[in-house]
Amino acid sequence: MTAVDIRLDHLAIAQRYAADPDGWPVAPRFDAVDRWYHRLAEEPDYEVWLLTWLPGQGTDLHDHGGSAGAFYVFSGSLVEDTVAASPGGAPRITSRELGEGAGRRFGTRHIHRITNRSNRPAISIHAYGPALTTMTRYRIGAAGLDVVTVERAGAQW
């Protein structure tokens, strides 16, 4: 068995922050209009975000601008829809529900959306490395994935 370097394991980082909610600089808040988020930490090789989700709130299809990462469900449940390219065909979407205590690692080319499809609020912790600089938002078009917009850190979130 190979030892995991916790400094590079984004899921382990997210779990470490989830294990110490008293150490968070802010308490989670819920916004009736959109999901709420707050950066918990910014380190040289990663950053950590706290997000809250009311029922029905979610993201568009997006990537993380070349950053790898992970998310951990602190409370509630979230559904992740992952996009995979199909040679010569429409992109394939795979869904998975992650309940409280579940987490998911992803690589630098990961495209997904996350939604709270349950009837109760959810809280999640997200870790990215390196820190996010851009996020590309997509939609599924006739020819596959179409870029809708590229958002830049510090300017659009």
Rank of each mutant, 00 (worst) to 15 (best):
M1N: 09
T2W: 09
V4W: 03
I6C: 06
D9T: 10
L11Q: 08
A12T: 02
A14E: 04
Q15R: 15
Q15G: 02
R16L: 07
R16T: 15
A18E: 07
P21R: 07
P21S: 10
D22T: 14
G23C: 07
A27V: 06
P28V: 03
R29L: 14
F30A: 02
D31N: 14
A32T: 15
A32M: 08
V33A: 15
D34K: 14
D34H: 15
H38Q: 10
R39T: 11
L40G: 10
L40Q: 06
L40H: 09
A41M: 09
E42T: 08
E42L: 15
E43N: 00
P44G: 14
D45H: 12
E47R: 02
W49N: 08
L50H: 10
L51K: 00
L54P: 00
L54E: 14
L54D: 07
Q57F: 05
G58I: 09
D60K: 01
D60P: 09
D60R: 10
L61F: 15
H64I: 15
A68P: 02
A68N: 13
A68M: 13
A70D: 03
A70H: 01
A70C: 04
Y72P: 00
Y72I: 03
V73I: 15
F74I: 00
S75Y: 09
S77D: 01
L78S: 00
L78H: 00
D81L: 12
T82D: 11
V83R: 05
A85M: 11
S86A: 10
P87S: 09
P87N: 14
G88W: 04
G89D: 04
G89W: 03
G89N: 10
G89I: 01
I93Q: 09
R96S: 12
R96Y: 13
E97L: 11
L98D: 04
L98T: 07
G99K: 10
E100C: 03
G101C: 12
G101Q: 07
A102T: 02
R104A: 12
F106I: 11
R113W: 02
R113H: 06
I114T: 11
I114H: 03
I114S: 00
N116T: 02
S118R: 01
N119R: 08
R120T: 13
A122L: 05
A122G: 10
A122V: 11
A122I: 12
A122T: 04
A127I: 06
A127H: 12
P130D: 11
P130H: 09
A131G: 09
A131W: 06
Y138T: 09
R139K: 14
G141A: 15
A143R: 13
A143H: 12
A143L: 02
G144H: 04
L145K: 01
D146C: 07
V147P: 00
V148F: 01
T149V: 15
R152F: 03
A153N: 06
A153G: 04
A155I: 11
W157N: 10
